[in-house]
């Protein structure tokens, strides 16, 4: 393996670590789940309220489950179902994307209306 190969690997890994670290710094426990379909906001749900929401996407749907202060997709009718396999998200900035349905589920941080992090 050439020396340049190692340099490339090192530089990219460093960039990734830096990027992740920067994001981690601004990440707090989330309070809201923001759902957008095709770039349009379609709903916002509190993370402290346990519920299951059916989201209608462009060419299909997915079920968003909010439980124990985190959000996950439990069911979807897309062919690859990558969104279902992904881990639950709970920190601000964390995202679950469902590409076929153009659904984007994003955790927002900051102050929740009424509720507190206590609910967790």
């Amino acid at each position: 393996m050439k020396k340049n190969d190692w340099i490339l690997a090192g530089v990219v890994l460093l960039a990734a670590a830096l990027l992740a670290w920067m994001q981690q710094g601004s990440r707090q426990t989330g309070s809201r789940v923001l759902v957008t379909v095709d770039g349009q906001e379609s709903g916002a749900y509190s993370l402290s309220q346990e519920q299951t929401v059916r989201i209608e996407g462009k060419n299909g749907y997915c079920l968003l489950q909010i439980k124990n202060g985190s959000a996950s997709v439990t069911e979807a009718d897309c062919p690859d179902r990558l969104c279902v396999r992904q881990h639950a998200v709970s920190k601000s900035g964390e995202t679950i994307a469902c590409l076929p349905g153009r659904i984007l589920i994003r955790i927002e941080g900051g102050e929740d209306s009424g509720y507190d992090a206590v609910a967790k």
Partner: peptide, 10 residues
């Protein structure tokens, strides 16, 4: 497709 840069960064 998702029209979101944040998801890209994540």
């Amino acid at each position: 497709v998702l029209r979101s840069v944040e998801s890209l960064l994540f």
